[in-house]
């Protein structure tokens, strides 16, 4: 019995452009997030009449509270990016529950997110201290290494956690399929032998940890590290 653990699948190519299934899933997720946002804020009134308006207000105020407490009041414009990053990361990781390949288990996507943070750190540093003021600390090679280690560690932390979940879930499904065929081989009908009965229900417990808990924690850590690093780059 061979278990194939693979990365993202290439769905189609247009000339040199490679489109993987994780990117298509990302588009669906973005459309979903935007649709939810649009629905939540469809008709807002100064006196709230619906529950969804309270939810929308709560969401916005939570993001603002988070950025205020970790970055300070002057970084209020940063809040929508934090919200976008968190929503994208969290919903992507959670999409693994539906059986599609989670976009966050694709190294390229996490690397792109971490590189955006890295660029923001550099831009903030240059804005705050000037070009030379920011880059003179890299004369010490240790600083250079730690600066480059920032996006790398962010990438591998997020990717490793989600990919580990994918690997373990895949292995578990394969094992459960194997055990169910072993059990069902006692029944001499080949059709029934193919049904992986043990796959029903059991992986759900693992999913609670790997998909729900880890998804939330990694998304939260990713935005927290982004905010901390960017606001630290100022001084």
């Amino acid at each position: 019995m061979a278990v194939e653990i693979t990365g993202p699948k290439v769905l189609f190519t247009i000339g040199p452009v490679v489109v993987t299934n994780t990117i298509v899933t990302s588009w669906v997720i973005i459309a979903l997030i935007v649709a939810v946002c649009y629905w939540l804020t469809k008709d807002l009134k100064p006196v709230p009449e619906t529950k969804k308006q309270i939810v929308a207000e709560k969401l916005v105020s939570m993001v603002y509270d988070l950025t205020d407490s970790t970055m300070g009041k002057k970084w209020r414009n940063f809040a929508p990016y934090v919200a976008a990053l968190f929503a994208y990361s969290f919903v992507s990781s959670m999409s693994g529950l539906t059986g599609v390949r989670a976009p966050t288990s694709d190294l390229s996507i996490i690397l792109a997110m971490a590189l955006v943070t890295f660029t923001m750190i550099q831009v903030t540093g240059i804005k705050a201290k000037g070009f030379w003021g920011h880059f003179k600390k890299f004369l010490n090679p240790l600083n250079l290494i730690s600066e480059i280690a920032t996006p790398v560690s962010m990438t591998f932390r997020h990717f490793g956690n989600i990919a580990a979940g994918v690997v373990i879930t895949t292995l578990l499904y394969a094992a459960l399929a194997y055990f169910s065929t072993v059990i069902l081989n006692l029944i001499p009908i080949s059709f029934i032998q193919q049904i992986p009965v043990l796959q029903v229900g059991l992986p759900a417990f693992l999913s609670i940890y790997f998909d729900v808990f880890t998804s939330f924690l990694q998304a939260y850590i990713f935005i927290m590290l982004t905010m901390v690093y960017v606001s630290m780059a100022e001084d």
Binding site: F156, R157, F159, N161
Partner: peptide, 12 residues
């Protein structure tokens, strides 16, 4: 979660 990084590097 931050302390987990080293373990995650090993996993990667």
């Amino acid at each position: 979660a931050v302390a987990e990084s080293t373990g995650i590097y090993g996993l990667v």
